[in-house]
Nucleic acid binder design. Structure first.
Lengths: 135, 135
DNA sequence: CGGGATCCGAGAGGATACTG
DNA sequence: CAGTATCCTCTCGGATCCCG
């Protein structure tokens, strides 16, 4: 995902190919391991930070660091809205923007398609594996 | 992507969370950096190996190693069909299966959506960045 | 509670050389 | 041409400690 790649990087080391297709980077943010799960969870409703961490964690445990990084890049791309209440203890709510909702729905569509086709995938894998060991 | 994670791994080290949602792994294969680009290219037509490498390379240069790995996992999942002709010099054609075509179309949909929304994304980034430096 | 900063291991991913 | 094998680099991502 290269979440913070654009922060402190010398121009010389920049991946020249990202100029070829800047949208590819956005696509990588959206389809990144944690990006996918975060977007899908937020499609249900807004979440507080720790709450979101637990929700995502039911699918796959995520460290605080990665969750923050993911949320920050998604916020910067305009997919996630961050609402920090100045209270003690701190309370921060994350929700999808309209743009983010569009993205999330497509991602969820792909996720659901994948679940629906898992049977065929596993069948294909068995064929592939047993064809290999005989090879 | 963890392409060959399932090859030589002790059960103890296996990511327990993949049992929670096996389809998540398939989703990661499909949405992986090279998986996305390969699927989209193959949606146009079948490709030979080097030909595909050049085609993908027009978007982002890919090493032979990663292209092979990607093709192998996609083939194992039943998304890509590999047709190796026993000739000299070797000729191998890669194409999408029906299952792969369905996946590829969804991925391409997401890619196109991303391109279409790049303007809004870049606008959001400017707002985010200038709000930061004032912070 | 919601983060930031730092350290560190593991694995992704590239370069090169070699084979059928 | 289509891979395989090896080595090496870089960064992803987790663990830990910190602060407001």
């Amino acid at each position: 995902m290269t979440v913070s790649a654009e922060v402190a990087e010398t121009p010389a080391r920049r991946d020249v190919s990202e100029a070829m297709c800047p949208s590819r980077l956005v696509l990588e943010h959206v389809t990144s391991r944690w990006g996918v799960l975060v977007l899908i969870e937020l499609l249900d409703r807004p979440y507080r930070f720790s709450e979101l961490r637990r929700a995502v964690g039911r699918v796959k445990p995520v460290s605080e660091k990665m969750l923050i990084q993911t949320l920050q890049t998604l916020e910067r791309d305009g997919f996630v809205h961050r609402d920090a209440k100045p209270v003690i203890p701190p309370r921060v709510d994350y929700s999808l923007t309209d743009l983010g909702r569009e993205a999330a729905e497509q991602v969820r569509g792909l996720a659901r398609w994948t679940e629906a086709r898992m049977g065929e995938v596993e069948k294909a894998r068995e064929l592939y594996d047993q064809a290999k060991e005989k090879g």
